[in-house]
Design a protein around this nucleic acid. Sequence first.
DNA 1: TATTTATACATAAAATTATTATGTATATTT
DNA 2: AAATATACATAATAATTTTATGTATAAATA
Lengths: 115, 115
Amino acid sequence: MFSQEILKGTIKPLIIKLVSENGQMYGYQITQKVKEMSSGSISLTEGALYPALHKLEDEGILVAKTEMLGNRPRKYYSLSALGEQTAVSKLSEIKESILMLVNLFDLKPLVYDIK
Amino acid sequence: MFSQEILKGTIKPLIIKLVSENGQMYGYQITQKVKEMSSGSISLTEGALYPALHKLEDEGILVAKTEMLGNRPRKYYSLSALGEQTAVSKLSEIKESILMLVNLFDLKPLVYDIK
DNA sequence: TATTTATACATAAAATTATTATGTATATTT
DNA sequence: AAATATACATAATAATTTTATGTATAAATA
């Protein structure tokens, strides 16, 4: 079981991807989604997640709205207008980067679907 | 053209891979090889490369021997005994990590050759 | 032949990012 | 009643990268 070490530098694009696919997501839900997608092997910890969410908000990519569940707050993030505009190119960029790694490390995939 | 931003966290495994494949390599050669492998799009800068080489040496993974070319020194790095022992598992690890990214970002490769 | 570019090493301050630890609190399950 | 899960957050430390700087030789070009 590796931690989120592997996500170095990819946390923000991953958040953008998940939020853009799901319309809106809250922090804890993102950690669970990543755990699920990685069959339990990646745990995206709060110390990495929340600062990244706050930074994306500061950058104007995400907007947050807090809802109360009983007495507990839940902070939903979604793409801002700017976020919508930039998501596609940001995701293309990270995908190209990952393919570059695949190439550098000789993972030699035969066929990719980049879409 | 992206810089080495994409290599965040992968520089040391990449060095191990290149050195293990080539028997021995020197720093400048590594920068050129990475540039060549990426069709000019990645420039692995000295500020990232040399500290990584020195760290791998400190960790006992690499050993260095300096040769003089005329008056100019050239420092060749190769795998130590420990480096030989650990290279395969370290490379498997980074490859698994990259495949995890491929999966998280939905790059959906059809077939991989991990060997 | 003078200048620029390439080769070749290195370090160091600043910035960025992640790790690890801690803090607070509610809801649910055992 | 206690433990675990849900849900937010910050902060010190560590690790890594960026950017800038430094030194010097060799080769190519103007």
